[in-house]
Design a protein around this nucleic acid. Structure first.
Length: 291
DNA sequence: GATTCGTGGAC
DNA sequence: TGTCCAAGAAT
């Protein structure tokens, strides 16, 4: 597939002029802050992350500060960001950084990948955005831009780290500063212009080079990512109700209180057992508490 | 590779 | 109103 050589340059220039001012893009923002922000941004929109991130960094300015409090404090401060296991994992990562890296967030992708809760995206995002190293960083926004502009598809297929990283590496500038700006810029383009629904192609710096647009926006026919199950009435729903109760309580939550949250006993027990297995709830004599 | 895992806003 | 989707990771 033909790829105009100036696509990276145009995205870099567009990003310099149109990128949002976000906390983690401010000069001098600490690597720890970048790591925390990336954990929070895993499946949670930017607007909801910003206030929680500020609180978090004020309370725990370094990994060591977080590592020395109980994990339950992290889960409580996570509030309603969703997927509370991420709070548990971030706390564990802080412990690992304190024990294995002298309290300094590592800059090496492999060292980052070894941290709990850090995967292909987060490891590279921290290495690149916090430390300026040169790696492809591929998130859902980038995957969508590549699918459309390069492959001519309306949607990216199911993610594959190997393929996705190779696809971005093909476009990644050699220069360190340019590579950083391109990684950030293509993500930003996917986030605010090349959006999943109603893309704003009139504002796109590479619209004239976009394979999907050139082909007349054909409907997507490839394999779609698995559809999200309905939340209402699901196990996740019940887990969420229990977690909200645990976060709000400063005394053990009794079985009676948990029973009042959901009528279906089998589903309730399944959810509670799952939370205990995940380490998000701990059973005591009087009831359940955060870890 | 397919599933599971919260929460809330946008359309 | 219900569906879609959001800077993913672990299993």
């Amino acid at each position: 597939m033909r790829t105009p050589p100036d696509i990276p340059r145009r995205i870099i220039d567009w990003f310099a002029a149109n990128g949002r001012e976000l906390p983690w893009r401010e000069p001098g923002f600490p690597a720890w802050g970048t790591l925390v922000s990336e954990f929070m941004l895993q499946q949670t929109p930017v607007a909801r992350v910003i206030p929680r991130l500020a609180e978090w960094l004020e309370r725990w300015p370094t990994p060591e500060d977080l590592a020395k409090v109980p994990a339950g404090e992290a889960v409580r401060a996570w509030a309603n960001l969703g997927y509370p296991r991420r709070a548990l994992w971030l706390h564990q990562a802080a412990v690992e950084i304190t024990e294995r890296h002298g309290g300094i967030v590592p800059d090496d992708v492999d060292a980052l990948l070894a941290l709990t809760g850090v995967g292909d995206y987060t490891a590279r995002a921290v290495s690149v955005f916090a430390y300026g190293s040169r790696h492809p960083v591929v998130d859902t926004n980038t995957r969508r831009v590549l699918a459309r502009a390069i492959d001519g598809d309306g949607e990216p297929g199911p993610p594959s780290a190997r393929r996705d990283l190779a696809a971005l590496e093909n476009l990644l500038p050699d220069d360190l500063v340019d590579a950083h700006a391109f990684n950030a810029g293509i993500m930003e383009l996917g986030a605010i212009v090349c959006t999943a629904r109603n893309p704003r192609c009139d504002d796109c710096p590479i619209a004239d080079a976009c394979a999907w647009r050139r082909a007349g926006y054909p409907p997507f026919e490839g394999k779609r990512k698995t559809v999200q199950k309905k939340y209402e009435g699901s196990d996740r729903h019940v887990r969420g109700l229990i977690m909200a109760e645990l976060r709000a309580a400063h005394l053990p939550v009794t079985v009676r209180e948990i029973n009042s949250l959901w009528a279906d006993a089998a589903q309730r027990d399944r959810a509670l057992a799952g939370l205990v297995a995940d380490g998000l709830a701990v059973q005591q004599e009087q009831g359940y508490v955060l870890p």
